[in-house]
Simulated scan of single mutants.
Amino acid sequence: MSKIEKMAQPFCQNSVEYVPVKDLFSVLPAPKKIPRSRYGEGSLYPVIDQGQALVSGYTDDESALVPKGEYVLFGDHTREVKWVNFPFAQGADGLKILIPGKSLVPRYAYHAIKNLHIASRGYNRHWTVLYKMKIPVPPLEIQREIVRILDFFEKLGAELEAELEARKAQYAYYRDRLLSHESLERMEGAAIESHPLGELGTFTRGRRFTKADYAENGVPSIHYAEIYTQFGTATDKALSFVRNDKAGSLRYAQPGDLIIACTGEDSKDIAKAVAWMGEGPVAVHDDCAIFHHTINPKYVSYYFQTSDFSKLKQRYATEAKMTRISVKRLASFEIPVPTPAVQQQVVDILDRFDALTTSLTDGLPAEIEARRKQCEYYRDRLLDFPRKEA
C-alpha cells in the first residue's frame, strides 16, 4: 500500500452522507454575458465560458463582472468543470456558476463535482443530469485534507499544461509557415496555383436534426458545435447518434469529405473543418457544409486552421445572434493546391507536430494524461466513502 493510499484509508472508514448537488449549491446568474465576438475587447478581466480552456478572452467591462467569490463552473453542453476564485466575466451561454453551501469547503466542492461521471448527451443540456447527482459530504477537516492532496497532483499537471500551451503556439507558427505559398513552392520545386474551393469540389448543406432526435445508439452524426468544441483536424469516430428512424431524412458525409461548421458564436468558430475519415457515412447537421473533393482531406483541414484562412473567413462572416458564413462564400475561397505528393508530405509533417501537442500516446500530452489519470485515481479513492444509511 502506497503512502497516499494509507492516507486515504482513514477517510473511507466512517460512513458519510451523500447529498444531491441541487441541495448543496446555488446557481448564480451572471450580471450580463460577454458575446464571443467581444472576447478580445479588453485586457483587464478574463472571460470564462464552457470551453476547454480556463480563460477564453478578456474584457474591460466592469458591469459584467461576477461578484467576488469561490465558484465551481460547469459547462452545460461540454461537461467541463472549472474552479474560479478571481474576478471574471461570463462568456457565451451554457455556463453554470455554482456557489457551494456552508457544508462544503469550496475547493472540495470543485473536486467532488469533477469526480462525477456524466455520460455525454451530445450537445444537449447536462445540468439536468448533474443537479440530481449526489456527492459525499464528510467533515470539513477531512475535506481540507483531501483538497491538500488533490491540489498537489493538479499543480503538477498545470505546470506541464503551461509548457504544452507554449509548444502549441510554436506549432501554429510553424504550420502557417509550412502552408505558405512560398514554402509550398519550395517543396514543389515549381510554381503552385491557387484555386477556389468551388472548383475543387462540391458543397452540400447537412440536414436538420434536433435534441429530440438524439439516441444512445443509432446513426453516427456530427453537430456543428462539436466541430469547434470536440474535434481536431480529422476524426474517424462520431461522438453522438441520431435515432435510426431518422436515417432516411438525413444527409451524409462520405469518407474523405470535409465537414465545415457554417454557424458559430463568433468568427473564430465558423469555417472550422474536420476531415471525416470513418469507414462509412456520417450524418451532418444543417448548420454544416459537406465538402466533397479529390484533395488530400487532411491537407485541406490543416489549411483551414492557418492564420491566412482565418483572416479570410472573418472578413466575410455575417454576425447577428449567431455568426454565419454561406456555402457560396466558402466556395469562393482560394487555397494553394500542390501535387498530391506534396500534400501528403505536408500532412505527414503536421501530423507529427500535431501528435506532440494533442496525442495521448506521445510527448507532453501523454505525460499530462498520465498525471490526469493519477489525479483521477486518487480522487476516486479519497472520495469513495461508505454511504450513511438513511
Rank of each mutant, 00 (worst) to 15 (best):
M133D: 03
P196H: 07
R167V: 04
V137M: 05
E216Y: 08
I113Y: 01
L160G: 00
G157C: 13
A166Y: 09
N124T: 03
H117A: 13
G122I: 00
A109R: 00
H181L: 15
A162Y: 05
F203S: 07
I149H: 12
R205T: 11
L197H: 07
P136D: 06
T128S: 09
L200C: 11
L150H: 09
T128G: 07
V137P: 07
F209H: 03
R208M: 12
E163T: 09
R205W: 06
A162R: 14
K155V: 14
A190V: 03
R175D: 07
K211T: 10
K114M: 03
H195K: 13
E161R: 15
L104Q: 02
H195S: 13
L160T: 08
E145D: 14
R144V: 08
L164I: 04
L178A: 05
A190K: 14
F153W: 02
E145S: 15
A158K: 10
S183G: 08
P136M: 03
E145K: 14
S120K: 09
Y171C: 06
I149K: 09
F153H: 06
L130W: 01
G201R: 08
W127S: 00
H195E: 10
T128E: 12
R107L: 10
F209T: 02
V219M: 04
L116D: 01
S103N: 13
H181F: 12
I118W: 02
A112K: 02
T128R: 03
A119G: 04
A162V: 15
A169T: 15
Y171I: 08
A166D: 15
L197D: 09
S180M: 06
A112F: 06
A169R: 15
A215L: 03
L200D: 08
R205G: 14
A119Y: 06
E199T: 07
